[in-house]
Each structure stands twice: as structure tokens, then as C-alpha cells.
Design a protein around this nucleic acid. Structure first.
Length: 198
DNA sequence: CGCATTTGACCTGCGC
DNA sequence: GCGCAGGTCAAATGCG
């Protein structure tokens, strides 16, 4: 199969979406699993096409451009990009002070974007809880979903070799609807309720 | 004043 | 067992 073409150079507020080919090492052949990308990326407006079963979308080449808050996904039906879900080594546990996480499986996956912006607006609210220098990366930032019942985390880092490349790793599944999506839907729902009451 | 970010300290897992 | 690296906590600080 022909390798996908290299992404064009980044521009302001433009994300070139490239699911990682080499991550994670242990489960490259496992494909996407059951991740609901519609839960991770917005469906709040007409520009966002990432809804429904991710498997159907991600088997093909995906180029994702974004104006920060509005994702625009195009699928050219050729190429071989694929997102890999990590199964081994996913760890979560009750918090031990300052420590690591217990070994239970948490859905986790990563992708990289080429962008001048570190943060890809996925519609959820995140609170930064740490940043630390690590090898082969430039100060990854750690974020946690601000929803009180949600334990989803994400890690955002730039590659030291290529600082235009941002690697985003999600860990966990949101147990609540996308806030921006709800913001958009709420007026509609109210309207529907009003009309239904007539 | 409340929420978000920064940053040094702390903790654990892992390799040797 | 030890040291390093990665991940998290939490107090201090910033900002609207």
C-alpha cells in the first residue's frame, strides 16, 4: 500500500491530524478498538464530521483541519492512517499521594498533530495539573477533565526532534456529554420541549 | 473571590 | 537495593 503523503507545513490554527503509527509499541496491530471518537471530538457544528463509529472513519486517511474550536475532518478514502489503542500497560489506581496508578485497564490512545497550538480544542474543559521535563520531549503538560465525576486525562507534548509536532495522549473515557456540544444542543432541546408542549 | 496555572516536592515503577 | 524517570500533589500565584 502506498504510504500516506507527508502532511503540509503547519499554519496558524490549523491541525494536521496524524494518528500515531508507532504508538503504542505493544498493540500496533490492534487497531482502534471501541473508542467513540464522537465523544472525544465535537459534533457541535456543521464543520465537524467526527461522529458515529470511529472504526468506519479511521480506516482511511484523515486530514483534520481546525479553526481551534471547529474541527473539520476530511476523509479522502485512500491512504492507511490508523489509530492504535493501548491495552497493555494502561494503569489506573486509587491515588496514593504523589504516586502512580494502579494496574487496571484504561482506554488510552494517542495521535499527533502538526500545529503551532499545543491544545486541540476537543470540546471538553481541561485543567492543567502538572508539567515536567522528560526525555525525548519538551515539557509535556498533564491535563485532567474538569468535570467532577470524570477521570479522563490527557498529556500534551511536543517532540524534541520536531517541535512543530504535538503528541496528544488521551487516557480514559468521558462519562458525561461534551460541554460545548451541550451548549449548542441546549437551546435546540428547549425549543423542542417548547414546541412539544404546544 | 473563584478558578486556572505554575512549579518544586514527593511518590512509585522499573531497569540495572 | 539504588537511582532515575515519569506522573501527581498541592501551595503559591495569576487572572478575570
Amino acid at each position: 500500500m502506498m504510504p500516506p503523503p507527508p502532511p503540509p507545513p503547519p499554519q496558524n490554527n490549523t491541525f494536521f491530524f496524524t494518528p500515531l503509527q508507532n504508538y503504542p509499541m505493544e498493540s500496533q496491530d490492534q487497531g482502534l478498538g471501541d473508542i467513540d471518537w464522537g465523544n472525544f471530538f465535537l459534533g457541535q457544528n456543521n464543520n465537524n464530521l467526527l461522529v458515529g463509529d470511529a472504526k468506519e472513519i479511521l480506516m482511511d486517511n484523515i486530514q483534520c483541519t481546525s479553526s481551534c474550536s471547529n474541527l473539520l475532518v476530511s476523509n479522502n478514502e485512500s491512504g492507511s492512517y490508523k489509530v492504535h489503542e493501548e491495552e497493555k500497560g494502561n494503569k489506573e489506581e486509587k491515588r496514593v499521594k504523589g504516586g502512580r496508578l494502579k494496574k487496571t485497564k484504561v482506554p488510552r490512545f494517542a495521535f499527533q498533530t502538526r500545529s503551532v497550538d499545543d491544545i486541540l480544542d476537543d470540546g471538553y474543559r481541561w485543567r492543567k495539573y502538572g508539567q515536567k521535563a522528560v526525555k525525548n520531549s519538551t515539557y509535556p503538560s498533564y491535563y485532567r477533565c474538569t468535570h467532577h465525576t470524570c477521570n479522563v486525562k490527557k498529556q500534551v507534548q511536543r517532540l524534541s526532534k520536531d517541535t512543530s509536532t504535538v503528541v496528544t495522549t488521551y487516557e480514559g473515557i468521558h462519562n458525561h456529554p461534551c460541554e460545548k456540544l451541550m451548549e449548542t444542543l441546549t437551546p435546540l432541546l428547549k425549543q423542542i420541549q417548547f414546541l412539544a408542549s404546544l
